[in-house]
Simulated assay, not measured.
Amino acid sequence: MERELGCDVLVIGGGVAGLTTAVVLAEGGVRVRLWTRDPVEGTTSAVAGGLWWPYRVEPVESARAWALRSLDVYEELAERPDTTGARMAEGVLGETALDDVGAWAAARLPGLRPATAGEYPGGSGVWARLPLIDMPAHLPYLRERFLAAGGVVEARTAADLAGTGAPVVVNCTGLGARELVPDPSVRPVRGQLVIVENPGVRTWTVSTGADGAPAYVLPQPGRLVLGGTAEEDAWSTEPDPAVADAIVRRCTALRPEIAGLRVLDHRVGLRPARDAVRLERAVLPDGTVLIHNYGHGGGGVTVAWGCAEEAAKLATG
Rank of each mutant, 00 (worst) to 15 (best):
G176F: 10
G176Q: 13
G176D: 14
A177D: 05
R178F: 03
R178G: 04
E179M: 06
L180Y: 07
V181R: 15
V181G: 05
P182L: 08
P184T: 04
P184I: 07
S185T: 15
P188Y: 07
V189Y: 14
V189C: 13
G191Y: 00
G191K: 09
Q192A: 04
Q192C: 02
V194C: 00
I195Y: 06
V196E: 01
E197P: 12
N198F: 08
R202N: 04
W204Q: 04
W204E: 03
W204Y: 15
T205Q: 14
G209I: 09
G209F: 10
A210Q: 10
D211G: 12
D211K: 09
G212N: 01
G212H: 03
A213E: 02
P214F: 02
A215V: 05
P219C: 07
P219D: 05
Q220T: 13
P221D: 13
P221R: 15
P221V: 14
G222H: 08
R223L: 15
V225H: 03
L226W: 03
G227R: 04
G227W: 05
G227F: 01
G228Y: 07
G228S: 13
G228Q: 05
T229H: 03
T229S: 07
T229K: 00
T229L: 03
T229N: 02
A230W: 06
A230V: 04
E231L: 11
E232P: 00
D233G: 02
D233R: 14
D233F: 04
D233T: 09
A234D: 15
S236M: 07
T237I: 10
E238Q: 06
D240N: 14
P241K: 02
P241D: 02
V243S: 13
A244R: 07
A244W: 01
D245S: 09
D245T: 03
A246G: 03
A246S: 00
I247G: 09
I247P: 04
V248Y: 05
R249Y: 02
R250A: 07
C251F: 03
C251N: 12
A253K: 09
L254C: 04
L254Y: 08
L254Q: 02
R255Y: 05
R255L: 15
P256M: 09
P256E: 04
P256W: 01
I258V: 11
G260T: 08
G260C: 09
L261D: 02
L261K: 04
L261E: 02
R262F: 02
R262M: 00
V263R: 15
L264I: 12
L264A: 08
D265N: 13
H266S: 00
R267F: 03
V268S: 13
G269C: 11
G269F: 09
G269P: 10
G269Y: 05
L270H: 06
R271E: 00
R271Q: 06
R271W: 04
P272D: 11
A273W: 11
A273L: 06
R274N: 14
D275T: 12
D275R: 15
D275P: 15
D275H: 14
V277P: 01
V277R: 05
R278I: 03
R278Q: 13
L279R: 11
E280H: 09
R281L: 15
R281T: 14
R281C: 05
A282L: 12
V283D: 11
L284G: 07
L284C: 08
